[in-house]
Each structure stands twice: as C-alpha cells, then as structure tokens.
Amino acid sequence: MKKIGVFLCILNCLFLLTGCWDRKELSEIKVVAGMAIDKGENAKYKVTVEALNAAELNTQSASGNAPTLVEGIEGDSISEITHLFNEYYAQLLIFSHMKVLVISEEIASAGRLDFIDFLERNREIRDDFNIIIAKDGKAEDILKIAAHYRKASSLKISPQLDHLLEDWGGDPGMSIINFISELNLEGKEPVLAAVRLKGDVEKGMSTENIRKVTPDAIVEVDSLAIFKNSKLAGFLSLEDSRNYLWIRNDVKTTSLSIECEKGDFSAIRVAESQTEVTSKWKNNKPSIHVGIKAEGYIEGTQCYKSVEELGTIEKYEQLVNKTFSKKIADTITNVQRQYEADIFGFGEVMRRQDYHAFMKVKDKWDKEFAKADVKVDVDFVLRRSGIRSKSFLTETEK
C-alpha cells in the first residue's frame, strides 16, 4: 500500500512538472504590434506587419537602430500570408499582442472585409486591438512612422485612440467582435475611427523623426468612417464623431466651447453624462428622441465674468443646451441626408421598444431612418466654476 502511495505521488509530480507542448524561446520569436491590409498589385491583398525590435524599445539596451521592422507580402488569403513572413524575418512572428489593425480606404470602400473571418477564428489573436481606417493613403504607411512615444507607430496609435476616447471622445473603441456583430445587426451600421498620415512618409520612416521637436511625419486621428452594406460609405468630422459617441452614451468626459458673446467663447468641461434614446413608429414614420443629461464645470471664460451674479449660471446652462442640442441634431440630419445609414442604432432601439413596427420595415430601415423625425434635448447642469467665482478679466477691467 505504501509503494502504491509513493507511485501515485511521483505520477502526480510528473503531471505538474510537464512543460508546454508549444513553447517557444524568447530568442526565437518576434512580437507583431500592428497589421495593415492594402489592395495588392498582383494579388487580392497586401498584408504588412510591424514587428518590434525589443532591444531598441528598452532604454538600457537601445543602440540607435530601428525600433521596428515593417514588411509586406501579397496574396489571396490573409491566413497564408501570415505564415509566409519568414521570407523576411528570422524569428517566428507572434500576433497575440497586436495593438492595431489598419485597413486601407480602398479595401474598405470595395467591401473586401472577408479577411476578418481569419482574425476572428485565429486562437492566437486577441480581441483587444484597435481597428482603424487609413484615410487618403496606404494602410502600410501608417505602420512605418517612427513615433516619439515608445518609438513604434502601433504602440503610439493604440493609447492615442484610448486616451482620445477617455478625455474628449472621438474613437468609437470598436473591437473586432463588436464590428462583426454590427455588420450583421438589424437596425445599426458600424463605424470605425479614421486616421491620416500628416507629413512626409519617407522622412517619417527614419529614426531621425523621433529626434525632432516637430516630426516630419505623424499619424493623427482624423474622423469617423461610416459603413453601409458592409462597405465604407464616407466620413464624418471629428466633432461629429464626438456627437456620435454622445448619442451612443459612450462619452465619458469632454470639453465644449460655447459662444457666449460674438467672438467670445467659454469652455465647459462635461464630467458626467447619460443618454437615453426612445424610438417608436408615429405618423407613418419613425419618431426618435435623444435625451442627454450632463453636468460639469467652467474651465475658462471670456464673458459673463462673475458667476456670482444672479442668472449667470442659468445663462451658461441654456447656452450649452441650445448649442449642443442643435449640433447633435445636425449630425443626425447630415447622416440621414448624405448616407441614409443608421450608424446610431435607432433601429436597434425600435426593435426593442416597438418590435412589431420595426419588423414591418426592417428590410428597408435605412430608407425609413432617412425620413425619421428626430428630436434632441440636452439638459446640462453647471455644478461649479473651478477654483474661483470671478474671472481675472473682471479685475483688469476696473
């Protein structure tokens, strides 16, 4: 009996001490930070990857060499291409830490998005990377720009998008699972953030780009890409992107500029916000109401110098309500007229709130959305005025 116990103990230890069957030594792998999809010249796709040179990302071991290696291969299948990169790289590419997927405007406009099936199926690729559209240029160029922050373009773009969403609103934060879901969703069209390369791509590829106070090239968040019927339909401005997020209840904090007197503006910081949308069938067309409740404080002012004066706070609140009710309504109207694409999910809301009415028009919802009555009401409450109640401008005018 004692021998059996010893045998079982040894057997248990063997199971605990077994290694991973698919392990790879660190010296044998290279981490991919970003992937770009362009139209190939001689094939369906051109896939470009940005692979990190780990030694150059470490301040203690950096020697001034290129922080990343960027190469591209053409082919008809994204899956096959990803296994061919040892044409260029000596190490095995690992995609599990990918931060950015860049899709060219040309590919998105043609609706060639079937490669997403591979990205969703692949067990090594996580669902935590940003998907963006490269506007007015090649997707591969976005990955070639040496950046001040962490030196790699992908490692700069990913937090850039996250911080923009957190601090102002401008990136829809679309994961690949959500994007696929919205491509197939009744009553909602998907959107993605769009970026643009500003400057000279050839100069931006050099490590000298990092050493300059004003870089020769930089990647900027430009706008919001609208999809319709699985194809890129057009773009909205960055401010419209913020309005889109506000309607979707995805704005965390943001800053507003309101014209309080002709040529004079005040800055308002929104600290909290809550959006409720109702959508129902009324008078033979959709009737949509967007109600936004928000609160915040004054960040700076060029008029209404003292909030202690009776009625000043109410003036600020009324200005915010009037100004941004109109701006958000204008964004919706623009999308209705120009694209007839319900990116806001009003159809999805109607499906939940007025199911039978929506099912009658779901096959032509975009047409119905285009003629919908939409009302936007912003209810803003000013909680405080910063650390002072009077502007210094009041004192200098005396």
Results as ranks from 00 to 15, higher is better:
Glu166Arg: 10
Ile94His: 07
Ile81Leu: 10
Gly263Pro: 05
Gln274Leu: 07
Lys398Gln: 10
Ser158Val: 03
Arg126Pro: 06
Gly347Phe: 01
Phe95Cys: 06
Cys260Met: 07
Ile328Phe: 03
Asp222Val: 01
Lys327Arg: 14
Gln302Trp: 02
Ala66Ile: 05
Tyr297Ser: 15
Ala43Glu: 08
Ala110Asn: 11
Arg351Asp: 10
Glu50Lys: 00
Asp373Ile: 01
Tyr89Pro: 10
Gly170Gln: 02
Glu368Lys: 12
Leu245Ile: 04
Gly187Asp: 07
Ser266Phe: 01
Ile133Asn: 06
Val361Cys: 01
Phe118Met: 07
Glu28Ile: 01
Tyr297Trp: 12
Ala329Pro: 04
Ile125Cys: 02
Val70Tyr: 00
Ser325Asp: 03
Leu232Ser: 09
Ser109Gly: 12
Ile298Gly: 14
Asn86Glu: 07
Thr333Leu: 12
Val70Gly: 10
Val251His: 09
Gly40Arg: 03
Gly170Glu: 00
Val47Asp: 02
His163Ile: 15
Gly34Asp: 09
Ala193Asp: 01
His148Lys: 14
Asn58Arg: 05
Arg351Tyr: 14
Ile81Phe: 05
Arg23Ala: 14
Ala62Trp: 00
Gly111Asn: 01
Gly263Cys: 05
Met174Leu: 08
Leu26Val: 08
Asn243Val: 03
Phe85Val: 04
Ile313Asp: 03
Cys9Glu: 00
Glu314Pro: 06
Ser63Ala: 15
Tyr149Thr: 11
Glu28Trp: 02
Asn12Met: 15
Asp330Arg: 12
Gly75Met: 04
Gly263Ile: 05
Ile180Tyr: 13
Asp373Ser: 13
Thr68Trp: 00
Lys44Met: 04
Glu272Tyr: 08
Asp171Phe: 07
Ala294Asn: 09
Ala329Leu: 11
Cys9Ser: 15
Ser230Trp: 00
Lys371Cys: 06
